[in-house]
């Protein structure tokens, strides 16, 4: 069955548990994930990722069908997946203290 996902979100691999924003969502908006309406918790710029489904702490984050790190806390569907809730399996990611979300 074809699962309906918002055209503003890109799924890069069938196994992925994150989706990439193809456009900036400047306000708090509602997106469709697998046919479900999910309200974003914050504005996000294109290129950022949101969870395609619930992700447990310690679970591998999959993008392009490949592991890109591991969740450091439980992540809800539609939540922003980034340095605040995932980490590298190799080397830490350097971010500025005042970096934008």
């Amino acid at each position: 069955m074809e699962r309906e996902t918002d055209p503003r979100l890109i799924r890069l691999g069938p196994e992925d548990n994150v989706l990439v924003l193809a456009t900036s969502l400047s306000a708090v908006e509602t997106v469709r994930l697998d046919g479900e309406e999910v309200r974003l918790t914050q504005p996000l710029t294109l290129g950022h990722k949101i969870a395609a489904c619930g992700i447990a702490e310690g679970e591998t984050i999959v993008k392009y069908g490949a592991p890109i790190g591991v969740a450091t806390q439980a992540i809800g569907p539609g939540e922003h997946v980034h340095v605040q809730n995932m980490r590298s399996n190799y080397t830490p990611s350097y971010v500025l203290p005042e970096a934008d979300p």
């Binding site: 924003l21 710029t45 790190g69 980034h82 080397t91 830490p92 350097y94």
Partner: peptide, 23 residues
């Protein structure tokens, strides 16, 4: 102590060196 990963990569939505690498 750091990967080949700049602060701007994170601001642009990349979270880890593996993710940057795949791209």
């Amino acid at each position: 102590g750091y990967g080949s990963f700049a602060a701007g990569n994170a601001e642009g939505g990349l979270s880890t060196i593996e993710e940057k690498s795949l791209g």
